[in-house]
Design a protein around this nucleic acid. Structure first.
Ligand SMILES: [Mn+2]
Ligand SMILES: [Mn+2]
Ligand SMILES: [Mn+2]
Ligand SMILES: [Mn+2]
Lengths: 220, 220
DNA sequence: AAATAAATTTAGACAAAGCTAAAAATAATT
DNA sequence: AATTATTTTTAGCTTTGTCTAAATTTATTT
């Protein structure tokens, strides 16, 4: 596997993330994601195409090649392992890990990452519940369902949270919801799409639509 | 404190290291240390001068300013803390830590480094015995004496080893010498400047001049 | 089907960091 | 003191990654 610059890696990872939602990624989308300008994106897309990281025809958008996907998974692996390290070992809070991991992910020493993985006990998910690819680039894609779509009285486990800010963390901590928490919806209200949620035998409490949209569940 | 590029940091750290021996650093010396060309060094010296990192008059060599020294100590702190982490937690061998730390040292998040320091238990020296500056940039300069200069029958402790290669490590492990080992010289031979060394009550053994030159001692 | 709007690419500049080759300054020899 | 050698700097080019403004292509309206 060749070597990629920090900039190339950031582009590749961003394409990977945008691709998870829609199939094809557009110039403007990627520019927004990376807080850069569309012209810069076009330049980089030409380079990534010659390096066979992406499929790209002018004006047609782009997506990662098989090789590009492998590279992206490597970056995601490093990013999430470091996030786990920061949260678990250094006691960083949820909202602080991402920024630091954004830099650490670019240290591309395979032995370092594999030993770190081992040291951490081969964690399966990062502090936000996102899966960590293994040394071979294999990633667990578990079918997760948004809390807004969970049927009433259906017990499920919180598997990930898509917003990574301190603001959502504050709210989640207050409501005692974390990755791994088992809960069920007791009632939905049409007026504001809020819901009554129950954790174990504790009294039910309310969750807003905005909060529920960011919580993803898994059946046990 | 401002922000410096990876390249600027590597130059600053290299000047710091060369400065430890002689007072003034020259263009050619620095170029050799960084495996770059003298012309590139001159370019960077101009930049570091405008940033007030170094004192520099054309043709006169350069040395770090007080501010430059502070920045250098920050880089050295990060480098050595990561070396300690790699050796202690990830079980990297002696000769592997430097290369990886060379990259990790450029992640300049203060909270990361201070939390890492705490997590590691505020280690005082890195795996080669070199002192780790604290969060305020204070570094323990202990008077160390080369094993070639240690008086006969004078008990002392191995405090650092200047060569960081796997070859010297192999030899040191074979002779059961490590940072912290207490030993004394029983006899010196003028012919090849080799010496008989004794650790505790174990039988004495021989150390070559070349090996002794790389071992530095401290009195307890 | 034109006309207009939006998205994308191209053209041309710029800063950072490196290089080679030539010029200038300093150091070492005769 | 003059010559030669060494060191250092300057000049000019290259690559990477970014930007703005203009041109082009594609999409959307009228
Ligand atoms: Mn990044
Ligand atoms: Mn994450
Ligand atoms: Mn470095
Ligand atoms: Mn070291």
């Amino acid at each position: 596997m060749l070597n990629y610059s920090v900039s190339e890696e950031n582009y590749i990872k961003a394409i990977y993330r945008l691709q998870e939602q829609e199939g094809m990624v557009t110039t403007n989308e990627l520019a927004a994601e990376l807080k850069t300008k569309p012209a810069s994106v076009t330049d980089m897309m030409k380079k990534l195409k010659t390096k066979k990281m992406i499929h790209y025809q002018p004006y047609q958008g782009f997506r990662l090649t098989t090789e590009g996907n492998k590279v992206a998974l490597g970056i995601v692996r490093r990013h999430r392992l470091w996030e786990y390290f920061l949260a678990e070992k250094l006691k960083f809070t949820w909202d602080e890990v991402h920024e630091v991991a954004e830099d650490l992910e670019h240290v591309t020493n395979t032995k370092l990452i594999n030993k770190l993985d081992e040291y951490l006990g081969f964690p399966r998910v990062d502090p936000h519940g996102d899966p960590i690819p293994d040394a071979n680039g294999k990633i667990e894609i578990s079918k997760k369902i948004c809390l807004t779509d969970l049927p009433v009285n259906q017990l499920a486990v919180v598997s990930s949270v898509s917003d990574h800010s301190s603001k959502i963390l504050e709210l989640l901590e207050h409501k005692k919801i974390a990755i791994g928490t088992k809960l069920e919806i007791k009632k939905r209200f049409e007026f504001d799409e809020s819901m009554e949620v129950k954790i174990g035998r504790h009294p039910a409490f309310t969750i807003s639509k905005q909060l529920a949209e960011n919580i993803f569940m898994k059946y046990e």
